[in-house]
Design a protein around this nucleic acid. Sequence first.
DNA 1: ACAAAAAGCATGCACGTACAACTAAAGTGG
DNA 2: CCACTTTAGTTGTACGTGCATGCTTTTTGT
Lengths: 149, 149
Amino acid sequence: MPSQVKTAKPSSDAHTWNRLLILHAHVEGKLAAVLQRRHGLGLSEYRALGFLDEAERSELRMTELADRLGLNQSSVTRLVGRLNTAEFTYRDLCPDDKRGAYTVLTDAGRTRYREARATYDATLSAALDELAAADPGHATIVAAARSAA
Amino acid sequence: MPSQVKTAKPSSDAHTWNRLLILHAHVEGKLAAVLQRRHGLGLSEYRALGFLDEAERSELRMTELADRLGLNQSSVTRLVGRLNTAEFTYRDLCPDDKRGAYTVLTDAGRTRYREARATYDATLSAALDELAAADPGHATIVAAARSAA
DNA sequence: ACAAAAAGCATGCACGTACAACTAAAGTGG
DNA sequence: CCACTTTAGTTGTACGTGCATGCTTTTTGT
């Protein structure tokens, strides 16, 4: 008789999602801390540089960045503002679309990114290892995430 | 010859982690939107109510909440402040430890939580279904997350 | 028993993000 | 062509969170 007792438990999905949230918070926290401390980069800044590095001609439009980062457009305006101030990127106007603005990676930006990437990758896999070892519940998710390459 | 070409790709872990970030952002975004719109609850507030509902005597200490929510302790002070103002919880002092403070769920809080939970659970599984259907890469993670119950 | 260290919580402050409103430049239909 | 709608991006504002700090109470070590 699976009915409602005094304190109903959350659905199974919800319960597992909570686990993923903990995992997410833990890993992102470590990544953010180490990137900030060792390279002076925020998480979104690091990732923005990464997307720019991958992109053709090392440039992307605001909307592109917003989509890939999963951020609001206005957030990206300010994010790119910070990157420009740090001279990791510069702003380039679109010739064919006068509304548009490209954000272009500078050499300094690329260099900083590649320095940081080693740290990032190492920290990430270490954090995943650690979580997988600490809790079999996490291990399942971690394993799946890793095999989803 | 797998050496470094002009634009090196991020590690496999990093690449897959990006996927999980997209998944996370997407799901959390939907949950946050629907909870705010239909129940006037933020995501952390909802989850705090949930943990309180599960807890013995429907009360938890600040640190407990912080741990379970994956939030900073000072964030929880303010979070609980909001809950108290809304009268979903009230503050109760610890008899045996004069430093401690319990946050106790009120009937109104429990009611609001249980109303919201239906919405939350439905939205969550819908969002997971949608993502799994849209992209097999996500599907792998979603399936694992779900089986990790 | 007492000084020193640690734990629990609150407060000041700064930062990153979201939302809404706005400007400007394209696209679209009559 | 000209109004209308849509798209790209920026700015004002508010909110939630983290970090550093401070205060009180408990624990620890000698």
